[in-house]
Design a protein around this nucleic acid. Structure first.
Lengths: 211, 211
DNA sequence: GTAAATTTTAAACAAGTGTTTGAATTTGTG
DNA sequence: CACAAATTCAAACACTTGTTTAAAATTTAC
């Protein structure tokens, strides 16, 4: 059955895999088009430039993730209005389902998405941050304000730092892969699904934020 | 007075600044030699290759940091033998002084060092990890075993993950710089010295590890 | 002070990058 | 089918990369 995918999608898929594996700057258009079995020029034809391709790859996930996250967040808002107390765990849990839903887009969708977000920070891709800020800045600000609500008494500056740290723990985890394992010579045969990692991470973040 | 530094040192200094600011792959030898006011070819003459230059830049810090850390760690070991209980805070504190001592090498030494370690992971610089692993693998393994000691009851796998997360929080913090600030549109005029960041980070990590 | 070793210099190299071009081909439409 | 629009293709473009070369300049040693 396997219908032949159109050029645009094949480029997006190949780019996603390579971006996640080797980063944006270390992936050439020739690698991408070769992997996708399309002509080199088709990237510029369909996307305009490499920068736009990077944005398109991430947009495919953001367009699924952010609305779902917003739904979850709105549910929390309503609950909050009802008078019930909003907890940090509730807030963190809200991220999990929208994230894991990304595996429906691609086999390693959730993982690739997180890795690429991380790489967007590590490599200084200003255009990516601008893109996210333009399209989702308000929603993200709202989410930060919810963190402030469930962590009363924490200064804005402290919250800023700790969310930074949390994001860092997540992102680094994704990008560094088995790097530390090499150094520490520890070798855990565990399966490291995204779900597994997220479940390890949330308690860590929760503890760090609560203090 | 300001004695003119030799070519080798000027290259190391310029490379350090640029590597920390823009990453290894995004810094060209021409940028480095131009910033250092030396000839392009002098990098290959004095260091052999760009890879070797990267290692040399980091080695300058590792050679200071690791011995000092080892001294601190050994002190903890002795105390531990004396029967007194070793705490997580003790262990984390052992890193601070050796780290801040790096500011004696360069104005932003400690910061640059951490940033570059982070970039070594984010960009996939296998040769860097190999270098660190070869030269300091044993000491690092010993340190991991101390974490295991002060965190009894935690499985090896859990410890592995959480140390990963902790390192991630640190490293991402260093490399991402003001990125999250742009998105969240938060703007804290605070001074962000290395000491300041480290002092914010340690409680976060301690909480996340303990839990 | 002169010869030898070290270092610096400008120039070129080969390889790789993103992008553009214009002709060939495929696709969709009347 | 035939015409027009959309897409694919090979080739070339202009530029940047790390590295090498061989001559010039400088420093060191006797």
């Amino acid at each position: 059955m396997m219908k032949k995918l159109d050029t645009k999608t094949r480029v997006l898929n190949a780019a996603e895999q390579l971006f996640a594996a080797h980063g944006f700057n270390n992936t050439s258009l020739r690698q991408i088009t070769s992997e996708a079995n399309v002509n080199l020029a088709s990237v510029n034809y369909h996307f305009g430039s490499k920068k736009s391709l990077i944005q398109a790859v991430l947009a495919r996930y953001l367009q699924v993730f952010m609305p779902q996250l917003t739904v979850k967040i709105n549910q929390l808002d309503e609950r909050s209005i009802d008078g019930r107390q909003l907890s940090l765990d509730d807030l963190l849990e809200a991220f999990v389902e929208p994230l894991l839903a990304l595996n429906r887009i691609s086999a390693q969708g959730a993982r690739n998405f997180m890795v690429m977000i991380g790489r967007g920070y590590a490599e200084t891709q200003g255009h990516l941050r601008r893109y996210i800020s333009e399209h989702y800045g308000q929603q993200l600000s709202h989410i930060v304000s919810l963190f402030a609500k469930v962590l009363p008494g924490m200064s804005k500056a402290d919250l800023f730092w700790r969310l930074h740290f949390s994001l860092g723990a997540l992102v680094f985890m994704m990008t560094s892969g088995t790097a530390l394992a090499e150094i520490s010579e520890a070798d855990f045969a565990e399966v490291t699904t995204t779900e597994h990692i997220v479940n390890k991470l949330i308690p860590f973040i929760a503890a760090g934020l609560t203090n």
